[in-house]
Design a protein around this nucleic acid. Structure first.
Length: 481
RNA sequence: GGCCCCUUCGUCUAGCCAGGCCUAGGACACCAGGUUUUCAUCCUGGCAACAGGGGUUCAAAUCCCCUAGGGGUCACCA
């Protein structure tokens, strides 16, 4: 799964690479078999593609330093482990899970950092080799040297850790699989990675990795640890706090451009006044050094506002295309019908474009268009508005009589709007007296698009039959009082 | 708890590195008006922050120290 925070990391890394003409590499880190199902990689690729993030090297497109899935690179790790073992920079550890657990418990209760105590450091390499050859299970640990480890971080500046605080971490698991910290260093170096942008949760992994680069005699890349994206509770965003999978936002109807824009604002700003900008602007201006240090609490309200902002300012045709799947899912129209009546569909979408914040909100907004003319559901608030004017059904009747020939002229919404105004003025009737009952009868909604635009979308025939039916319903359902 | 990181309106942030231009700017949300046939949009205005305390300085949101608070991490996860 591609987490929303991971998407932001990818976005920033991608923007940085694009800005400087670098190469953006997509590598699948799937060494944990349990968390790496088949759909997992696909979701990552789909998510990035949805956002419009492309990569120069990756599992699907290949590249000069492939393969790009860690499970296909096991031989690389095995060789590196051999080398480190031979050099004494790493050692085999035969400690049982039970002993480690007990050790950890002891350290934790004493208030110390839980770390391996180095027991197997003392095992003679020849003996260790013999024991492993004899089938005794073991892991390979990195032998952390004394001293201090420093590295520079584009966002945090110089960072230093005392090596005594760095655990003799496991590089190779007992089943022979590499751990993240190990695989990543091998890969980053072999893939000529110069810049590593990742989440702040990796900050404490960095000294381990830097030490490994040094042991391998490799050049250390430049790091940039992005602040975390936090939930409303101020804690690292997680499933518990809300939706965190990127594709959930697609499925909920967010425009990808809004997701991109919003993600940028979590930790970065274009300038002191601009909230809405494109990814081209990001690429033009992004510098990791400008990223803030503190975690950003994800604000769903602002996200929604931004989504609406993008939908409102977008071209109708595209909004319609993106709304279409939701309309189909809601059962309002089939894909075929939408294609066959595309102009009409677009005019229907136009009625709601500035009123929705997500594509998924469209169906509910235009559902009234699809109701049978003689039983359009009337919302209580709509009926209440209509009832505010006594004799509404009589006025509607007179309006209908006037309207029939008007509709036949096919003047469209602007013309009808004007002529209706004239009709109202001539008889000294205030607009709401007609328009509120009219809206109720045609849409059943208390609010919504300009009623003359609605009439245009509904068409003459349906407008008339809704009026006829509406007048009957109003008359027969007179208020109780 | 150890280690590491962080701290400007409720939230996202600008300003901080190169101290005076800050009466701290913008945005979301909220409140009040206006436009509109309704809703939405749009426009105008308002509310609201430099965590606290010490320094340094003519001058500190900006530099230093301390305190408090928050977060991350301590896996044969990534």
């Amino acid at each position: 799964m591609l987490h929303i925070g991971g998407a932001r990391t990818a976005l920033f890394a991608w923007a940085y690479a694009r800005r400087h003409g670098g190469v953006f590499v997509l590598r699948i880190e799937d060494t944990d078999r349990e968390r790496s199902g088949a759909g997992y990689e696909q979701a990552i690729l789909d998510g990035l593609r949805w956002l419009g993030i492309d990569w120069d090297e990756g599992p699907d497109v290949g590249g000069p330093y492939g393969p790009y899935r860690q499970t296909e690179r096991l031989e690389h790790y095995r060789r590196a482990a051999e080398r480190l073992l031979a050099a004494g920079a790493a050692y085999r550890c035969f400690c049982s899970a039970a002993r480690l657990e007990e050790l950890r418990a002891r350290q934790t209760s004493a208030g110390d950092t839980a770390a391996y105590d180095g027991l197997c450091r003392a095992v003679d390499p020849a003996e260790a080799r013999a024991r492993s050859a004899g089938g005794e299970p073991f892991v390979v640990r990195f032998r952390v040297p004394p001293g201090e480890t420093r590295f520079s971080d584009l966002i945090r500046g110089h960072v230093a850790f005392r090596n005594e605080d760095v655990d003799d971490w496991i590089m190779v698991r007992s089943d022979g699989a590499p751990t993240y910290n190990f695989a990543v260093v091998c890969d980053d170096s072999e893939m000529r990675i110069t810049h590593v942008l990742r989440g702040e949760e990796h900050l404490t992994n960095t000294p381990k990795q830097v030490l490994l680069y040094q042991a391998l005699g490799l050049e250390v890349p430049v790091f940039a640890h992005l602040p975390l994206m936090l939930g409303t509770d101020g804690k690292k965003l997680s499933k518990r706090t809300g939706d965190t999978a990127l594709l959930d936002y697609r499925d909920q109807g967010y425009p990808p451009e809004a997701v991109l824009n919003f993600l940028c604002l979590q930790g970065w700003a274009l300038d002191d006044r601009t909230d809405l900008f494109s990814v081209a602007d990001l690429v033009r201006h992004f510098d990791p050094a400008d990223v803030g240090k503190r975690g950003a609490i994800f604000d769903p309200e602002k996200f929604l506002w931004m989504a609406g902002e993008y939908i409102r300012s977008d071209e109708l045709a595209r909004v319609a295309s993106r709304c279409a799947p939701f309309v189909v899912r809601a059962g309002l129209m089939s894909e075929g019908e939408i294609a066959a009546r595309r102009p009409w569909f677009e005019s229907a979408v136009a009625l709601a474009q500035e009123r929705i914040r997500l594509y998924s909100e469209l169906p509910a907004r235009i559902a009234y268009l699809f109701a049978p003319d003689d039983e359009v559901p009337w919302q209580p608030a709509a009926l209440k508005n209509a009832r505010r004017h006594e004799g509404a059904e009589i006025l509607l009747g007179e309006y209908l009589a006037w309207l029939r020939p008007q509709l036949a002229t096919g003047g469209g919404a602007p013309v009808l709007r004007e002529t209706t105004r004239g009709w109202l003025e001539a008889r000294g009737t205030k607009p709401p007296v007609l328009l509120q009952p009219l809206r109720c009868v045609l849409t059943g909604e208390p609010g919504g698009a300009d009623i003359f635009d609605v009439i245009a979308v509904l068409g003459s025939e349906r407008t008339i039959s809704r009026l006829e039916a509406g007048i009957r319903r109003l008359a027969s359902s007179a208020p109780a009082e």
